[in-house]
């Protein structure tokens, strides 16, 4: 494995080498390694680029890593990955995309991830996006995520984009069955002239379903961010949307949380806040010996942790 690959793998999947368990590494639009296990089958799609990941019912304490690396300038790809998580399974899925663009052409990875989470299954999904490279070519990622949670299924989804992606449009859709639970945490930092947009629609259909959506972001320099999470209660459900942003420099941030109830027992709450770093927080850390720059970094790191 080359140095650039290792660095990208570490940034997007916390991996130092090939992972343990099932994995599929995609590099520059080609497969660069794959391993299925007894319970987790990774199969190449025949009709379009992408893979099916089939997790057998009852699979527990296993993980799947599916990192995507792009190190050539000028690559543009659209990938379809479908996850079928069997009843009662409990698994960790680590996805992520790293683009190292040292050329002057745009590199783009667009992915459509669909999750079919069976009855009583539990999945934790972590997705990190990262870009670097000294080239002037844009680094673009547009992830679409669709989640279907059957009765009693639980999905914890964590998406992180901290550095180096010039343009992102994230689209997430989820439907929840009876007693299903969705926890979505989105962390984003934009800098330079980056643009990020996140649209999310969560349909709470089943009785006793619940959703918690937390978005934390920091906008620096001349970057722009737009958040539009929507929670729709179609049954006796609970949902909470929280959008919290720190704005700096000349950044622009729009936060548009939307809640809708189509059932008298739907309880849905939203909160949204955008503000500068609190002066007292900086001051407090300065009284502990940090410089203002160190204090600012500490506050942002904690906020996005």
């Amino acid at each position: 494995m080359e140095k650039v690959d290792r660095e990208l793998l570490k940034a997007v999947a916390d991996l130092h080498d090939v992972p343990v368990g099932a994995y599929n590494i995609r590099k520059n639009s080609e497969s660069a390694g794959r391993k299925s296990t007894e319970n987790i089958q990774i199969i190449t799609k025949e009709d379009k680029p992408g893979i099916d990941i089939r997790i057998a019912p009852g699979t527990r304490n296993e993980s799947v890593h599916i990192p995507v690396l792009i190190t050539e300038s000028g690559i543009s790809e659209m990938v379809y990955n479908d996850f079928f998580i069997g009843e009662g399974a409990d698994v960790l899925i680590v996805a992520g995309c790293g683009i190292h663009n040292s050329g002057d052409q745009k590199s783009e990875h667009d992915g459509i991830h669909r999750f079919f989470v069976g009855k009583g299954a539990k999945v934790r999904y972590v997705e990190k996006h990262y870009g670097d490279g000294e080239g002037t070519g844009e680094r673009v990622m547009n992830p679409t995520t669709e989640i279907v949670l059957e009765d009693d299924a639980v999905c914890e989804m964590e998406t992180v984009q901290i550095k180096g992606v010039d343009s992102t449009v994230r689209v997430s859709r989820a439907t929840l069955g009876k007693n299903a639970k969705l926890i979505m945490t989105e962390r984003l930092m934009t800098h330079g002239k980056q643009i990020a947009r996140s649209d999310m629609v969560v349909e709470l259909n089943g009785e006793g379903s619940s959703a918690q959506i937390v978005s934390r972001s920091v906008g620096k320099d001349d970057s722009e961010q737009v958040f539009n999470p929507i929670a729709v209660g179609n049954g006796a459900c609970r949902a909470h949307i929280q959008c919290d942003s720190i704005i700096m420099d000349r950044a622009k941030i729009r936060s548009i949380p939307e809640i809708a109830a189509n059932h008298p027992e739907a309880q849905i709450v939203h909160e949204a806040a955008i503000g500068r770093i609190n002066g007292d927080q900086l001051l407090k850390l300065c009284t502990l010996g940090l410089t203002e720059e160190e204090a600012e970094k500490e506050i942002i790191d904690g906020f996005l942790k």
Binding site: R216, D280, L283, K284, I299, D301
Partner: peptide, 18 residues
């Protein structure tokens, strides 16, 4: 602070995530 002064705030700030 580095010269050895310390100060406890009357109304300490809170930090999300710390």
């Amino acid at each position: 602070a580095r010269a050895g002064l310390g100060y406890a705030f009357q109304q300490p700030p809170r930090f999300k995530g710390m």
